[in-house]
């Protein structure tokens, strides 16, 4: 019963899980984060031309704001909109990774 409840409730509580990127896609996203985001934000995410993306800094910001920043960019800064290359599910997974919530 408990298991049934969990499996029905979880997708509601975390809608992003419904469209979790595939294992292969996660690998691509992880490489993109390290290498391509790393070009501006540093491979250790301590910042560069772009602001720091440390776990502490990311945890201070809401998921929706971060997803929006990834997909739509930040006007007035070099941060481009990535929606041509990333889906919303991709962006949600990246936000979880940035906050240290993925394995």
């Amino acid at each position: 019963m408990k298991r049934l409840l969990l499996s029905t409730l979880l997708p509601l509580a975390f809608p992003a899980w419904a469209s979790e990127p595939s294992a292969q896609r996660q690998q691509q996203l992880s490489a993109l984060l390290d290498q391509d985001c790393g070009s501006c934000h540093g491979m250790t995410r301590k910042g560069g031309l772009g602001s720091p993306l440390t776990m502490e800094a990311m945890r201070e910001l809401g998921d929706e704001a971060l997803v929006a920043t990834i997909l739509d960019g930040r006007p007035g800064t070099p941060m481009p909109p990535w929606k041509l290359m990333l889906s919303e599910a991709d962006a949600r997974w990246l936000v979880r990774r940035l906050k240290g919530e993925t394995p």
Binding site: D36, C40, P80
Partner: peptide, 14 residues
């Protein structure tokens, strides 16, 4: 005219 222009296209690497 050197620059991003009116449309200001996204730039994926400086």
């Amino acid at each position: 005219h050197y620059g991003r222009g009116q449309e200001a296209l996204p730039v994926y690497k400086m």
